[in-house]
């Protein structure tokens, strides 16, 4: 009796499910690491570009957190994603068979900038300044590589203590643009963020460099990458993964690249992110 009902329910669900997926568009997402309007403009252009190259409907779905991007990927509601180093490692660990396809030229050697409000009295330096101790400090998002993972790693290395003990107060601004705004206004005395966001914001004249400056740059590490699910060939046809990779690597439109901003895209592999994974394990951010 119950079994019958269950079977009916399952059948009904099975019948309902394909209605939505009948057109089978490729859906992708991206971590919300900075201004959403700009992300949306950027990725809608990418969607158009990919649709043309792949001759298939491509849809971009914005999400509100790094974890939501990973979850959508894991749940197969999106098949492709522009992840950060850490979120990519999390996603690939959760979805066996998924792989890093391509990274930006800059992502092979990415950096974190530590910034501080002038009133904190810290000068730019070759080592992480000891003077950070006892200040207020903001990371970016909890799941960010350049805004959380790497800065926390270097802080622990330098001070041999967790951030909560180094600083008077620790916050999570949510994204890199917000980190700049909070340190610029002196709400937090110091912070750490994605170097590329810092440089493009400074270039665009959106930062009051009299109020906030870079005090230390981390050594390079691997960051952002396009990651794809392992089952896309089965779903979208043989060679689909290869075609996406080619489309990404062949992205030459300057306007499109400028919006990332990246010089271009180069091949990436899961192995490129082994260091990120080990660092995240050391900080107990992943199991």
């Amino acid at each position: 009796m119950l079994k019958d009902k269950l079977r009916h329910l399952t059948l009904a669900l099975l019948l309902l499910a394909p209605i939505a997926t009948a057109a089978e568009p490729l859906v992708f997402t991206a971590i919300p690491d900075q201004d959403e309007t700009r992300l949306r403009e950027r990725f809608e252009k990418v969607a158009d570009y990919l649709a043309e190259e792949l001759d298939r409907e491509v849809r971009f779905v914005p999400v509100k957190s790094y974890a939501a991007a990973v979850t959508a990927f894991r749940n197969n509601q999106v098949q492709l994603a522009w992840f950060g180093g850490l979120s990519g490692v999390q996603a690939r660990q959760l979805v066996p068979g998924s792989e890093a396809l391509a990274q930006g030229v800059e992502d092979a050697e990415f950096r974190t900038y530590f910034i501080a409000h002038r009133s904190a009295g810290l000068a730019p330096s070759d080592r992480l300044p000891k003077g950070l101790e006892g200040l207020t400090f903001t990371f970016g998002s909890k799941g960010s590589t350049s805004g959380r993972l790497m800065p926390e790693y270097y802080l622990r290395q330098r001070f041999d203590a967790p951030p909560s003990e180094i600083f008077d107060r620790v916050g999570f601004s949510g994204n890199h643009t917000r980190t700049i705004a909070l340190v610029e206004s002196g709400t937090y005395q110091a912070g750490a963020l994605n170097y590329s966001v810092w440089e493009s914001e400074v270039e665009a004249g959106r930062v009051d460099t009299d109020a906030v400056q870079v005090i230390w740059k981390t050594p390079p590490y691997a960051d952002y990458q396009w990651t794809i699910r392992g089952d896309v060939d089965e779903r979208f046809g043989d060679g689909f993964k290869r075609r996406i990779r080619e489309a990404l690597l062949n992205m030459k439109n300057p306007e499109l690249l400028e919006s990332f901003p990246r010089e271009g895209f180069i091949p990436a592999s899961n192995a490129d992110y082994a260091t990120i994974r080990e660092t995240a394990q050391a900080l107990d951010l992943i199991d």
């Binding site: 957190s65 790094y66 974890a67 990973v70 979850t71 999390q90 959760l94 903001t138 998002s141 909890k142 799941g143 107060r169 620790v170 916050g171 999570f172 949510g174 951010l285 992943i286 199991d287």
Partner: peptide, 20 residues
């Protein structure tokens, strides 16, 4: 919890952000 005030909600949010 989002403001960095370590209420229970802060830890719940952290756990979810870490996908745990």
């Amino acid at each position: 919890g989002i403001l960095g005030i370590a209420t229970l909600g802060f830890y719940v949010d952290s756990a979810i952000q870490e996908l745990r």
